[in-house]
Nucleic acid binder design. Structure first.
Lengths: 207, 207
DNA sequence: GTATAATGTGAACGGTCATTCACAAAGGAG
DNA sequence: CTCCTTTGTGAATGACCGTTCACATTATAC
């Protein structure tokens, strides 16, 4: 009775496969849904084989978060290339992130509130910097807009950053709570942006 | 060797005690931290005794959510008594909810994103209506403000509701991610409100 | 081709936790 | 005081899951 004869792949390839699959699982069902058995099945391995490439579950999650971080920062870089206007950049960033959420599910809040009591704190320390970088990037764009006279100088950039993030996060929470039905995230994001824009733009109406 | 001689309390008293303790646990560590053993210890019972008063964990969580719902709706009712002005009501509601979060920790997002794959969906169906009621209450206040000429008629009430909720939720997420240090939720909420107010008030500047 | 390292496998171990159950203690009605 | 119901207890059960390990298979260097 011979073994199923599974191909041996180099560990860097496997690490990539596993991290990708892990991020998918977290997106679908939160950190707790990241189960070694399921993960291994998706990659086409036996559960024990996973440990050839990662020290353990924590290690895997770290790699998955890394992937997520890359996706977010790629969006930031993209909008800065696409347009020189701060307001336009913010609007585009909003749209890109919304699309990211739509395809990859609410990873950020799931990571933030994944509630494993033992691992939770450790994981949160990994996620916090990702959110921090994202918020800083937004705040930087706002500051730039203030310098160039496009955005009012009497709104704190970090407040705008948080509100913008909220524009994404809240419809996502609602969507998630309702089981993914009856919530049009895109519409909420657009409507919220129009409102927020009026509060921060020097001359409301354009862009 | 006699038993510790624990007092027998009526089941309605116990249900109350248990639900209260359960909400506390969820607030501190999310639904997963709601462990029967811990819960029982806090109430001063053996784990098995809990099952005299509840069918199981789900049942307990439902009771806890009920308690949370009551707290939220009490805040809504209170602000409507405190002031007739819509903007003033919204501002006060924000402050009350902020205080609720500060004392009871981020219950809402924890419930929303508690990631138990098996129970998750069932629990979310219980939490969704609570958020729904809260958002509706905010939207109603906004509509009232529009009727009375205090709030611009060109902003959708549901958008304002979501943004207001975001004003609470986002600093809370940040605070939680950072392990509860270095984030002044109250300051963020106030700053956000000033900004949002400018976007929705007919004559910005007052209240 | 062969030796050696890298990768893959099934089975078993151990920890955590909700839940059950037979029995004990307490409270209240008579 | 006594009976019966309600409430409380410790021990045991069983499910779930991450992790380990001795051994098998494949890749690779020589």
């Amino acid at each position: 009775m011979p073994k199923p004869a599974r191909a041996h792949r180099r560990t860097d390839v496997r690490r990539e496969q596993i991290a990708r699959a892990a991020l998918g699982l977290v997106a679908e069902g939160g950190p707790r849904a990241l189960r070694i058995a399921v993960l291994a099945r998706r990659v086409g391995l036996a559960p024990s084989a996973v440990y050839r490439h990662f020290h353990g579950k924590d290690d895997i999650l770290v790699a998955a978060i890394e992937r997520f971080r890359d996706m977010v920062l790629a969006n930031v870089r993209a909008v800065c290339i696409e347009s020189p206007s701060a307001l336009e950049r913010l609007h585009r960033l909003l749209r890109r992130q919304e699309k990211l959420i739509r395809h990859n599910a609410p990873i950020m809040p799931r990571l933030a509130f994944g509630d494993d009591p033992t691992r939770g704190a450790k994981w949160r320390r990994r996620v916090a910097p990702v959110l921090g970088e994202f918020l800083s990037a937004i705040a930087d764009i706002v500051t730039q807009g203030q310098r160039e006279g496009e955005i009012r100088r009497d709104v704190p950039p970090d407040t705008v950053a948080l509100m913008l993030f909220g524009l994404l996060m809240v419809p996502t929470i609602l969507w998630h709570l309702r089981g993914g039905v009856g919530v049009n995230i895109e519409r909420h994001v657009e409507s919220g942006w129009r409102t927020l824009r009026r509060a921060v733009a020097v001359r409301p109406g354009r862009t």
